[in-house]
Nucleic acid binder design. Structure first.
Length: 679
DNA sequence: TTCCAGACGTTTTTT
DNA sequence: ACGTCTGGAA
C-alpha cells in the first residue's frame, strides 16, 4: 500500500491492524490524527463504502481537515457522509428519526444563548421573586443542567461538585429545569445537549440501534480523552454490532472537563470494549527537542498523569523564549514586531499562531495587528453566527422553518417598538392556538395600540418572506433586509454598514445550502469564526496568521507559536483553579499550547496586565505578576532572558514605570504610550 | 406595559 | 469597561 509509506512502523501497525476494538494512546504530535486519516484512506482504498465509516471529532475544523486529507490521500472524490462532530452526526440521524422520539423533523437547534433566555423565563415563571433566598443565575442553572446531562450523573451529585451552595434549592432547580424541558419540547427545539441525549434515546430502540450498528462497520473517534459519559454510551451503542472501533487520545491533553469529559473513558477502555488492542505512539514528529523538553517538564508537575516522555526526531537549537512586557499594549507591540520580522523574512503567515487562555486576552494584539494591516483568522469568543444581527436574521428564517420556535419568536418580536415580554407572551399564546399561516389575523384584539404598530412592522417583514419559503435562502435573507430589518439596523447602530456586510456574507454562505432546516442547524452547530481585517475579495485562499484560544488550537500545529498573557490569574485561569482538579487541567491546557509549536515558541506576559482576576478589569491597575507555570520552568529550558531571575529584574524596572502610568493615565500618557493611546 | 437611567456584578474554555 | 437588572416615570 503506497499511501502508507509516510507512516512509521507504529502508525502503520495501527492503521493496518486497527480492526476490532482498539485504543491508540498517543502523545502530542505523534500523528494520532494521521492514524485516523490514513486508516480511513486505507479502508476506502480497500473498497469499503464511505457510508459504512463513521468518524467522530470534536470540532468541525478537525472533521473538515480530515476529510480534505483523506481526499488527497485517496485521490478519490469520495464524500464521507458520516464524518463530523458528535453533534453533527446526531443531528443528521435525528433529523430522519425525529418522529420516533416525539419531535417533528424540522426541529430547531438552540444555541447557548437561546437556552439562557429560556432559562431566564423559566426562573421567572417558577420561582417567586419575593422569596429572600437567593436563586442561582440562569447561567449557573444552565451550566449545572448541561453538566448533569453530559455526565449522566444525578442532579444531586452534580450540585455537590459544581454548586454546593445550591443543594438546599434542589427541588426548586428541578422545577425550573422541568419548565425548560417543556418549553423546548413545545417549541419543537433541541439544545446542544438534547442532540446527544435524544440520539442516545433513539439508539435505545433496538431496531434503530441495529440499523446503524450494522451500517457503521468502522468507527473512528478522535480525541477520545475529551469524550464524556453520554458520548461514550453513544459510541458503545453504535459499535454494538461490529465491535469495530478505533479511538485515539492522549490523557495529557484532556481539557474539556467543564463539558463533563471523563478521562475514565480512556482509562477504562479495555473494560468497556473487552479484548481491546492498545497501540502506543510515543515519537513526536512535530516539535523540536527544545520545545518538547519544556512540554515534558511542564506536564511532569501533574500527578494524575501517565508518565510518558515523548521522544522527538529533530533539534533546532532554538530554545523557547520568554518576555515580560510593561502592559498589554507593550506586549502586543512586542508580538507584532516579532511577527513582522518573520513575515519580512519570508515566513508564510499560516505558520504563525498566537494563542491565549481566554478570548478576551487578545484585544490589545488585535488593535496592533489591525493598525498595521496584518490580516488574521480568529478562533474563539463570539462566533460569526452568534452575532446579534446575524441571529436576528436567522430568527426570521427559524420561524419560517419551524413556526413553533418560540425562542426565535421572542427574539424577533422583542425588538419591535411597543412589544415587551408581556406582549410577546400574548402573541405566542395566539400562535399556539392558530393554524399555520394565519398569523396576519392575530394582533388586533390582544395587543395595545402601541404594540399594534410593532406587530404591523413585523408583519411587513413576515409577509415578504412567508408566502414563498421555497426561494433560495439568500433571496429570503435579502427580502428580510429590504422589508425592514435593514432600516432597523440603520436606525439602531452606527456600524450598520458593517452589519449589513456581515449579513451579505451570511447570504453567500447560504448559497451552498438548499434546505432551510439543514442550513439553520448547520449554522448553529458550526464553529465558524470571524476573519478580521480581510477585504472581502480575497477572503478565500488568503494565507493569514491565526489568533486562537488554546482550546480551539487543539490538534493544530504551527512553526512559530506565541502564548500571550502568561500572567497570574490569566493562565492558569483563576476561576478554573477553583474547580476540582482545576490546576491540573490548566496545566494540561498549557501543555497543549506548548506542543502546538514546531520550531519556535515565545511566551510572554504583561507586568501591568490591567487584568484583575483573569478578566479584563477596569478597577485598579493591578500588577499581577507572572503565571505560576513560568515559575515552575527550569531556567535552562528557556533562551532569553537567560534565567527567570533576570526577567524578574526587568519587572522591577518596569514597576517604576507602571506607577508612573497608573498615576498619569488620566492625563498625558508617557511617550511610549502615546502612539497606542491615539487609537 | 414599556422604556429608560442608573445600579450592579461579572466573562474560561465549546458543541 | 461592559452588559444585565431594577425601579420608577411615561
Amino acid at each position: 500500500m503506497d499511501i502508507l509509506n509516510d507512516l512509521n512502523e507504529q502508525q502503520k501497525d495501527a492503521v493496518v491492524n486497527g480492526d476490532g476494538s482498539c485504543l491508540v494512546l498517543a502523545g502530542a504530535g505523534s500523528g494520532k490524527t494521521r492514524v485516523i486519516t490514513y486508516r480511513t484512506a486505507y479502508l476506502l482504498s480497500q473498497g469499503i463504502n464511505p457510508e459504512n465509516i463513521l468518524i467522530m471529532t470534536f470540532t468541525n475544523k478537525a472533521a473538515r481537515e480530515m476529510a480534505e486529507r483523506i481526499q488527497k490521500l485517496t485521490g478519490m472524490d469520495k464524500y464521507l457522509p458520516y464524518a463530523g462532530t458528535f453533534h453533527h452526526i446526531a443531528y443528521k440521524i435525528l433529523k430522519k428519526y425525529a418522529e420516533v422520539i416525539g419531535y417533528k423533523n424540522n426541529f430547531s437547534v438552540l444555541d447557548q444563548e437561546d437556552g439562557l433566555s429560556l432559562f431566564k423565563i423559566c426562573i421567572k415563571e417558577n420561582i417567586p421573586t419575593s422569596e429572600d433566598k437567593k436563586f442561582p443565575s440562569p447561567r449557573v442553572v444552565r451550566e449545572i443542567w448541561s453538566y448533569t446531562r453530559n455526565s449522566l450523573l444525578p442532579l444531586e451529585e452534580v450540585l455537590e461538585i459544581k454548586g454546593e451552595r445550591w443543594i438546599p434549592l434542589q427541588s426548586d432547580i428541578e422545577r425550573v429545569i422541568r419548565g425548560y424541558e417543556n418549553k423546548k419540547k413545545e417549541s419543537n427545539s433541541m439544545d446542544f445537549d438534547d442532540l446527544l441525549t435524544n440520539f442516545l434515546q433513539l439508539l435505545c430502540y433496538d431496531d434503530v440501534r441495529l440499523k446503524f450498528a450494522k451500517q457503521f462497520q468502522y468507527i473512528l473517534v478522535d480525541e477520545y480523552q475529551d469524550t464524556n459519559r453520554l458520548q461514550a454510551k453513544i459510541v458503545k451503542k453504535l459499535s454494538s454490532y461490529h465491535n469495530n472501533i478505533l479511538a485515539v487520545g492522549d490523557d495529557a491533553q484532556s481539557i474539556y472537563s467543564f463539558r463533563a469529559a471523563d478521562i475514565q473513558n480512556i482509562l477504562g477502555f479495555e473494560k468497556d470494549f473487552s479484548g481491546a488492542k492498545i497501540f502506543k505512539l510515543e515519537t513526536n514528529y512535530r516539535s523540536s527537542q527544545e520545545i518538547l523538553s519544556l512540554a515534558n517538564a511542564v506536564i511532569d508537575n501533574n500527578h494524575r498523569q501517565y508518565k510518558k516522555q515523548l521522544k522527538t526526531i529533530f533539534h533546532t537549537d532554538i530554545k523557547p523564549e520568554f518576555k515580560v512586557a510593561l502592559d498589554p499594549k507593550a506586549e502586543a507591540k512586542f508580538i507584532f514586531d516579532k511577527i513582522k520580522a518573520r513575515l519580512d523574512a519570508g515566513k508564510s503567515p499560516k505558520e504563525i499562531a498566537v494563542l491565549f487562555r481566554a478570548a478576551t486576552h487578545s484585544q490589545s494584539l488585535e488593535v496592533e495587528l489591525v493598525r498595521h494591516g496584518i490580516e488574521y483568522d480568529y478562533r474563539g469568543g463570539v462566533r460569526f453566527f452568534e452575532r446579534a444581527h446575524i441571529k436576528d436574521v436567522l430568527s426570521y428564517l427559524k420561524i419560517l422553518n419551524n413556526i413553533s420556535d418560540e425562542a426565535a419568536w421572542r427574539r424577533v418580536l422583542l425588538k419591535e417598538d411597543g412589544i415587551g415580554p408581556v406582549g410577546v407572551e400574548k402573541i405566542l399564546l395566539a400562535i399556539r392556538q392558530i393554524e399555520k399561516n394565519n398569523i396576519q389575523e392575530i394582533g388586533f384584539q390582544i395587543l395595545s395600540g402601541k404594540a399594534q404598530i410593532g406587530w404591523q412592522n413585523f408583519l411587513r417583514v413576515w409577509s415578504s418572506i412567508s408566502p414563498e419559503p421555497i426561494l433560495p435562502i439568500a433571496e429570503l435573507i435579502k427580502k428580510i433586509l429590504n422589508a425592514g430589518y435593514g432600516e432597523y439596523l440603520e436606525n439602531e447602530y452606527i456600524d450598520s454598514r458593517d452589519r449589513v456586510e456581515d449579513i451579505k456574507q451570511l447570504m453567500s454562505f447560504a448559497e451552498n445550502s438548499d434546505n432551510l432546516s439543514d442550513f439553520l442547524a448547520e449554522v448553529t452547530l458550526s464553529e465558524n469564526y470571524r476573519t478580521a481585517n480581510a477585504p472581502d475579495a480575497n477572503r478565500q485562499n488568503k494565507e493569514r496568521i491565526v489568533l486562537s484560544t488554546v482550546h480551539q488550537a487543539k490538534g493544530l500545529e504551527w512553526e512559530t507559536v506565541f502564548i500571550i498573557n502568561m500572567s497570574a490569574g490569566g493562565f492558569p485561569n483563576e476561576r478554573a483553579m477553583r474547580e476540582v482538579e482545576g490546576l491540573e487541567e490548566e496545566r494540561r491546557l498549557f501543555y497543549v499550547a506548548i506542543t502546538r509549536a514546531k520550531k519556535e515558541l515565545i511566551l510572554s506576559y504583561p507586568a501591568d496586565s490591567g487584568f484583575a482576576q483573569g478578566g479584563r478589569g477596569g478597577w485598579g491597575e493591578t500588577v499581577s505578576g507572572p503565571s505560576m507555570f513560568l515559575e515552575e520552568i527550569d531556567a535552562d529550558l528557556l533562551s532569553t532572558p537567560p534565567s527567570f531571575l533576570a526577567s524578574l529584574a526587568d519587572l522591577d524596572d518596569a514597576n517604576e514605570d507602571i506607577h508612573y502610568i497608573s498615576e498619569n493615565r488620566k492625563f498625558k500618557p508617557g511617550s511610549f504610550l502615546r502612539e497606542v493611546e491615539d487609537l
